[in-house]
Simulated assay, not measured.
Amino acid sequence: MRLSIKSCLIGLFCLTAAISGTQGLVAVSQLDSIQTQVDEVATNSIPSVDVLHRLNTLTRDYRVKFYRLIVASIDKTSIAQNKTVLINTADDILRLRKQYEPLISSAEGRSLYEQYAGRWDMYLHELEPIIAAAEAGHRDEALAMLASGARAVALGKEISDLLQKDVALNKKAADTATHSSLVSISQAVRTAYVAMGIAVVTSLGAMLFCLLGISRSLVDMAAAMRRLSGGDVAVVVPSVGRRNEIGAMASAVQVFKNNLIHTRRLEEDTALARASAEEQRKAGMRQMADSFEAAVGGVVGMVSSSATELQATAEQMT
């Protein structure tokens, strides 16, 4: 299988990008979860606890002011004043209830609030005849009704208990959201460390691949090419046979080396052929000279013999 350097680098960079992107998405998701939980605590649980505490306090104040209206009012003026204070407290309770109702976010909280609202209405209904007797000037009758109003006392206690349960429920929700936030933060930190570790390992792998698989091979290839350019055909071309771009480059350098070796062989053969031709030419010239010398010697011998014969003939004629 051919795995090119381009493919390796693209794969490594894509893996690093995928790790970084995944880390970012996980971090954003966990931060969003943490923000939701913190918002739940900041905008719901804590305000709910605060409103319920104030509502419980106003409920107790209402009961105290009711007792003050019945017990401490001795004339119409004090009755009117205490009745006004009681009405104002009831209005404050109503405002707090309207403020709390949008904060209810669970079925259990809704159930507790509905129980509270029902007990509160029943409690107010129990107090109406006592307040009416006090306003009518029947103080003794009102005190007697108050003394025998065990139902109102029980309802007041139930109301306080229900508000305390609702406070505990919201505190529990706040604690749960806080714990979940801490867990999400811990998970986000672990995820960040894991992703960072993977990214570091991937980056080191890419660095080592570039250093050992590319840079060193190119350095060795450059050294081999310098030696070849200097005429050293004994050099071994590195990375020959690799199925990537470095291998293709090595194959091209190997072809250059083979061509250089072939060229040198041709030059050597040409020089040998030239030397052999020169030797043959010299031998031929020597042979021609010898033949010429032999031919000339024969002619000279014949001329000398003829001259001798001619001299002898001349002497005979003389």
Score class of each variant (00 low, 15 high):
A133G: 02
A132L: 05
V183G: 10
H179A: 14
A177G: 05
L146W: 06
A154S: 09
K157W: 10
T176C: 04
Q164M: 14
E128K: 12
A154P: 00
S186Y: 11
K165G: 10
S148E: 15
A144G: 12
A177T: 01
K171R: 06
V153R: 11
T178A: 09
V183D: 14
M122P: 00
D175A: 05
R151P: 04
P129G: 00
H125V: 03
H179P: 14
A154R: 12
E141L: 06
L163G: 02
T178W: 02
S148M: 12
A150S: 14
L182D: 04
D175N: 10
V153K: 00
G137D: 07
D166H: 07
E128R: 04
E158M: 08
N170T: 15
L124W: 02
A173T: 15
V183E: 09
E158Q: 15
K165A: 14
R151Q: 13
A132S: 10
R151G: 00
P129R: 00
L169G: 03
A144Y: 09
V153T: 07
T176L: 09
K172V: 12
Q164C: 05
S180W: 08
E158P: 08
A152V: 02
E135F: 01
G137M: 00
L143F: 01
H179C: 07
I131A: 03
S148L: 06
L182M: 15
A152H: 02
L127Q: 03
I131W: 10
I130C: 04
D175K: 10
R151M: 12
S180R: 03
P129Q: 03
A168C: 07
D175S: 10
S186W: 08
L162D: 13
V183R: 11
A136L: 07
D140F: 03
T178I: 14
V167G: 04
E128Y: 11
S180E: 12
K172F: 14
A147Q: 09
S184W: 05
G137V: 03
R151D: 06
I130V: 09
A134S: 03
H125D: 15
A144V: 06
G137H: 00
L127K: 01
D166I: 03
A132R: 03
H125R: 15
K172I: 13
A174K: 04
H138L: 02
L162V: 03
L127E: 01
